[in-house]
Design a protein around this nucleic acid. Structure first.
Length: 225
DNA sequence: CCAGACGTTGTT
DNA sequence: GTCTGG
DNA sequence: CCAGACGTTGTT
DNA sequence: GTCTGG
């Protein structure tokens, strides 16, 4: 908390949340820009609910936005202008299908576990005038690079640190923002396999990034029969 | 004009 | 809300 | 993303 | 198989 509060010079009212098992469809901490250039942390729903949605049913579907098409898709393209956010993290998981049995989760980080930001978009959904608005977000993805592709064919866009301020800046247009996202820090990532503890969102602690078979929550190392 | 979509991932 | 398809 | 539910009636 | 919940 202290790290990213300092890094993003968050306003005192910010109420960030962290955890080792931030899952789609749940709350996630995002950083949004203020008109005066300040930044604020909020908890948004991970899974975009467009402003025009009649129900919240997309909230488990629109968890990602492909960078290749984000400026074309009706649900996303308007958000590239003025509705960008940072989603701070120090790593992410991808699941690797196995020839047999359950998928193997992998944990990806920058060197020295340095803090970074995913490139996100956000919006507000208010189904009726007299109910509380719901803020939600989605995360840009791109084709997996050499580090991630053995595990999974897509990966989140990790912004270069120098791009973060401009990503939040409303004065930066959609085209320029897309350029920032394309020129990302994904080639700095490292990978290691982890316990299957992360597969259950009931596990929210450091056991999620423990080495495989080095914990009591990841299930048996081998099948019983 | 109105109706209907609006998304990604993974699997087959 | 806005765009595409019919 | 993965895990877990997926149903109604009647009884306590 | 498909949807909801975390």
């Amino acid at each position: 908390m202290a790290l990213f509060a300092e890094r993003f010079e968050l306003e005192p009212s910010s109420r960030p949340r962290d955890g080792y098992n931030i899952a789609p469809g749940g709350p996630v901490t995002v950083i949004v820009g203020e008109s005066d250039g300040a930044a604020r942390a909020e908890q948004f729903h991970w899974g975009l609910i467009p402003a025009w949605a009649k129900s919240a049913e997309t909230r488990y579907k629109m968890i990602n936005a492909r960078i290749e098409t984000v400026d074309e898709k009706p649900a996303y393209r308007g958000l590239l202008e003025g509705h960008r956010c940072l989603i701070p993290a120090d790593g992410f998981f991808e699941w690797q299908p196995q020839p047999e049995g359950p998928k193997q989760p992998w944990w990806f980080q920058l060197a020295d576990a340095e803090l970074f930001s995913f490139a996100g978009l956000w919006t507000t959904w208010q189904p009726a005038p007299d109910v509380e608005p719901v803020h939600s977000c989605t995360m840009l993805t791109c084709e997996a690079n050499d580090v991630v592709s053995p595990v999974h064919h897509r990966m989140p866009v990790v912004l270069k640190r120098a791009s973060e301020t401009r990503w939040l800046d409303p004065a930066v247009g959609a085209a320029a923002a897309l350029t920032l996202a394309a020129d990302c820090a994904n080639d700095q990532l490292t990978a290691r396999p982890v316990s299957r503890a992360v597969n259950s969102t009931r596990n929210t602690g450091p056991e999620c990034v423990a080495a495989p078979n080095d914990d009591a929550t990841g299930g048996p190392a081998t099948a019983l029969f």
